[in-house]
Structure formats: C-alpha cells, structure tokens
Design a protein around this nucleic acid. Structure first.
Lengths: 97, 97
DNA sequence: AAACCTGATACCATCGGTGGTATGTCCTGG
DNA sequence: CCAGGACATACCACCGATGGTATCAGGTTT
C-alpha cells in the first residue's frame, strides 16, 4: 500500500456518503413511484387492481407511488412481473466521459 | 409427473407471482453480490475496507456478497457511491416482439 | 340525496435487512 | 509454532418496509 490510500478515500467520503446515499435513495424511490404510477394509469388499472396483481395492499401501493417509502427489491420484482416487465438493477461505473 | 410442468406452473402462477418474484429477487441479490465482490477485488479492497467506506459492518458485506440477503436500495446506493458508480434501477417493458 | 369507486392517511403487527459483537476457519508471515 | 489478516457464520437488538384494517376526502353515477 503506497500511502494508505484507502484511508484517504474513506476520509474524503466519510462526510457525505451517508447523506448522499440517503438522498439518492429517496430520489430513486420517488422516480420509481412516478414510473409505476404512469405504467399503472397507462393500463387503466386502479391501485386496488395493481395491489391484487402484486399481492400488496392498496395502501402499500399508494405509499409507494407517493414516494413515502423506499421499496424493496422483492416488491419491485412483483410490480415488474405485474406489468410484464423486467427489473434491472445495475451498478454502472461513472464514466469519466 | 415429471413432465409437467413448467407450463402448468406458469399457468397456475398467473394470479400469484409471489414465488416468481421471490426467486427473481434472490437471483438478483446473488448477481449483485457477485458484481460487488468483483468490483471490490478489482480494487484490491478487503471486506473491512469496503464496510468502512459504506458505513456497513464487515459481516453485512459478507452476507451481501454471498447473496444471503436481498440488499435494500439505500445500501446499494452507499455501495455504488463507495465504488464511485451510479445505481440504476429500471422497470423495462419486456415487449416480446 | 345515496351508493359507489378511487386514492390517501393512520394505526398496529409482523417480517426482513442491517448493525454490532463474538467466534470460527483458512491462509500467510513472523 | 504462533501471530495477524481475511472471510464466513451465529446470535441478538433495532429500524424500516410491508400487510391489514379502518377511515377519510373527492368524484361519479343513479
């Protein structure tokens, strides 16, 4: 190890990673909620119909679409299946452009 | 009967996609774990170093990489940030031709 | 007006992921 | 042989997401 680089990296990020992650997750939850609402209305489904298809409760759908909670991957999978879609989760390297 | 099926199974699950979703989520968790492990080793980081960067515990990293648990979106965000990457979650239409 | 559907909110119980600690195993270096 | 690092597993406590129910507001229909 040259100059304890990972310690440097840690120190550099320690102050913002948690906050940044929380913000990013919240934003992601919001965007996913919007997308699901769009897909649902596109099909003319009510929240109850979608909740039945996904095995969720109607309140859960409402919370999710409002961005009130950060959905879990199993939930996203069920929603994806209900929409006959595929769930894609990827860690993509930030291109240095 | 051995032949049976997947057709029957698929037909039967038309109304309950819970099993399929659980399986898909587990597979997704496994693949994400593999990817994170690859990215971590690529950088020569130990689980402990990554745990420090993400604010997670080393056991949490181990469980995650082994696919033992399905990670939450905030956790994935923190890992993405630690790797200086971006997290992409999308519901893509399956559009079977 | 009443009956109905839709979506949003509140409350509570349960489940699953995580944090923390401790421990076990394997490997490498002293 | 012993010491240390790395990874895995076990146990427990806490927290967040979900399930379920009930309730409320808004709109539509009769």
């Amino acid at each position: 190890m040259a100059t304890t680089s990972w310690n440097d990296v840690k120190a550099a990020r320690n102050g913002d990673s948690a906050v940044e992650a929380a913000y990013a997750a919240a934003q992601l939850a919001f965007e996913l909620g919007e997308q699901v609402r769009a897909m649902r209305e596109e099909r003319g489904w009510s929240q109850r119909q979608l909740s039945a298809l996904t095995g969720m409760s109607q309140p859960a759908i409402a919370r999710f679409e409002a961005g009130g909670t950060t959905p879990t991957l199993p939930i996203l999978e069920r929603i994806a299946i209900a929409f006959d879609s595929t769930l894609s989760v990827q860690l993509k390297p930030k291109e240095v452009a």
